[in-house]
Amino acid sequence: MAKPAGSLYRGREGMWSWVAHRVTGVLIFFFLFAHVLDTALVRVSPASYDSVIDTYKNPIVNLMEVGLVGAVLYHALNGLRVMLIDFWEKGTRYQSQMLYAVVAVWVVIMVPGFYFMMLHTLQSMFGSA
């Protein structure tokens, strides 16, 4: 099947960055729904809020937090890329290079980010340094 010319959004970097933008966006939206509901418990009572937050204090939820931050960070960086494609005159020409820049910046932030976010879990599992 011939590839239609003139679209950023068919195959390769253009399409996969768009797919990842959608998937992360939908995930973040559902997280936000849960996050507003759990925080709203501060209006009910300190005990109900604290009891729900306590269920988050374990390694599995800690790992999910890292996943959330990774999703938000990708969505933010790729959102900047989308704005540059829209508003920068050379944006479409460099769209795939900009995706590699997005991935590079993501890795550079997420590696120390993983360490600092997991510090408490790592210390509780392997002893504090």
Binding site: P46, Y49, I53, H120
Partner: peptide, 11 residues
């Protein structure tokens, strides 16, 4: 300090 520090008093 992450979620470990979070409780009603923190908010």
């Amino acid at each position: 300090g992450g979620v470990q520090r979070i409780n009603f008093g923190f908010v």
